[in-house]
């Protein structure tokens, strides 16, 4: 009798010892489930995020307070250096301004000779960065503006430096934006003056790489990389970055903006560039 009890106890203890294996299997099942049921899981996540966001907003207040303090001190230290730099930049910009005025006039004259239709005006809004889920595995943000504020899927996110992300998920009051460096990001691009076509692929590093480069065409280090507008997700001609590293089988691009240290982003809708293909993400 005693030995039976002892055996039962042992079985029970072994069961509880290996009980986590059940949860490991459940986790694996969930992974497969979310890869197959993308829409359903996406909706579930959207609902949960709406609950979490107010909590994160409360947590981030003291963190921001400290961060702003540190940044202020850094700003004071850098003011003199920045002032010198700004003076130089201002001189350069004044030159460009006069050139721009000249070109504008020239363009006005030239338009008269063309059957030119101006593109539709773009819609844009500014949103606060609410959550930053950047890790070794993903590079995206949650911004505090959603469908209620006029955000639509496919809008492009800009920092003061330029394009760096795209809206991939829209909730009522929040949206998820995916940076160009995220592993899911695919951007058709042109490189340099010759407009060499390629696909810019994110891999969670700070420098995405180029794929499907034509073997007959060459690219040089420092050449400009801009959106080509193929497939229609991105309008053509938006600056993304510069060719940064050329190796035998890999070309890396340094984006003009990685999205770090951003408190606000500008979301712009380009009506002329609606996606032609539904994304599979």
């Amino acid at each position: 009798m005693e030995s039976k009890l002892f055996r039962l106890k042992r079985i029970k203890s072994q069961f509880w010892r290996f009980f986590p294996v059940f949860f490991l299997l459940v986790s694996l099942f969930f992974i497969v489930f979310s890869l197959t049921q993308v829409v359903f899981v996406g909706q579930m996540k959207q609902t949960t995020l709406s609950v979490y966001n107010p909590v994160v907003s409360v947590i981030k207040e003291p963190v921001y307070w400290v961060r702003n303090g540190i940044e202020k001190i850094q700003d004071w230290i850098q003011t003199y250096q920045e002032n010198e730099h700004l003076k130089e930049e201002n001189e350069e910009l004044l030159k460009w301004r006069s050139l721009a005025i000249q070109l504008k006039e020239e363009q006005k004259e030239l338009k008269k000779y063309l059957n030119f239709t101006a593109p539709e005006k773009t819609k844009h809004l500014v949103a606060e960065v609410a959550m930053d889920e950047g890790s070794a595995f993903t590079r995206s943000f949650i911004v505090a503006a959603g469908a209620n504020q006029g955000v639509t899927k496919g809008m492009l996110a800009f920092s003061p430096k330029g394009l760096f992300a795209r809206v991939v998920e829209v909730m009522p009051n929040f949206s998820r934006i995916m940076t160009l460096t995220d592993y899911k990001s695919r951007v058709p691009v042109w490189i340099g003056e010759n407009k060499v076509s390629a696909l810019l692929i994110g891999d969670n590093t700070s420098r995405p790489f180029l794929q499907f480069l034509n073997e007959n065409e060459t690219v040089q280090k420092g050449e400009v990389v801009m959106t080509s507008g193929y497939v229609g997700v991105y309008p053509p001609g938006l600056l993304i970055g510069y060719v940064n590293e050329i190796q035998e089988d890999e070309v890396r691009v340094q984006p003009i903006e990685n999205g770090e240290k951003l408190s606000f982003v500008r979301l712009i809708d380009f009506p002329l560039s609606k996606p032609l293909l539904e994304e599979t993400e």
């Binding site: 490991l24 459940v26 099942f29 489930f33 979310s34 979490y52 889920e133 595995f137 993903t138 995206s140």
Partner: peptide
Amino acid sequence: DMMTSLPLGFYAFGFV
């Protein structure tokens, strides 16, 4: 997992 764009169960697997 609910808060990231990764599949559900990714972090749960590691934690367990």
